[in-house]
Amino acid sequence: MTQTDYYLTVTGISKSFMQGDQKIQVLKNLDLNVRRGESIAILGRSGSGKSTLLSLLCGLDRPEEGDISLAQTWFSSLKEEDLTLFRGRKMGIIFQQFHLLPHLTAVENVSLALEILGDKDAGPKALKALEQVGLLHRKDHLPLKLSGGEKQRVAIARAMVIQPDLLLADEPSGSLDESTGKDVMDLIFNLVKENQMSLVLVTHSQELANRCDKVLLLDEGQLKGINR
């Protein structure tokens, strides 16, 4: 299989941080390939560099070495601004802490992602997305008035509403109780399947990871395959 067969390609990326006088190599010559519609789980202990990898995949940070390509577009060829727009069109991101804008209602938070892309039908599409996550009745509520599970559903609707090709999820059930967390993850997997999108899921949970097509372990700055 050639690189062009993959939707997301990561080739030899490295990233380090300075901690005091000490240089910490977080990612070392890391490779990753994800096909369209494929779901990948990345496991790793705290501090192993999962979030660093995720921020590089989002294009929020740049690798010191290597490059990343999404839909045949290499990140290194894009300027910061273009990369931001590219991310807005191609990727949906779900955070552990939900990160909704506190002053916007549920529907406004969802429609914002479409409005940024200049979508004229942002309102109706946002309502439909909220309906898909079962929160239409809470559309006019501010995040303050929503429970943790509801907030994460709004965040999922916001990520999905742009119909991204790649969904990046950072421990999406990490802040939720077991039952709510399970419901949220079911929702994510169903939507990914329905929309034929690729998923990169960062998690601590082996059980959750097992629901993905492939499970990788981030250890000593490199991804290693895990047999299930």
């Binding site: 999962k50 660093t52 940070d61």
Partner: peptide, 11 residues
């Protein structure tokens, strides 16, 4: 600034 602060893990 980067957006790492939004992600759950510091590294």
């Amino acid at each position: 600034k980067g957006a790492q602060s939004l992600l759950q893990d510091a590294l």
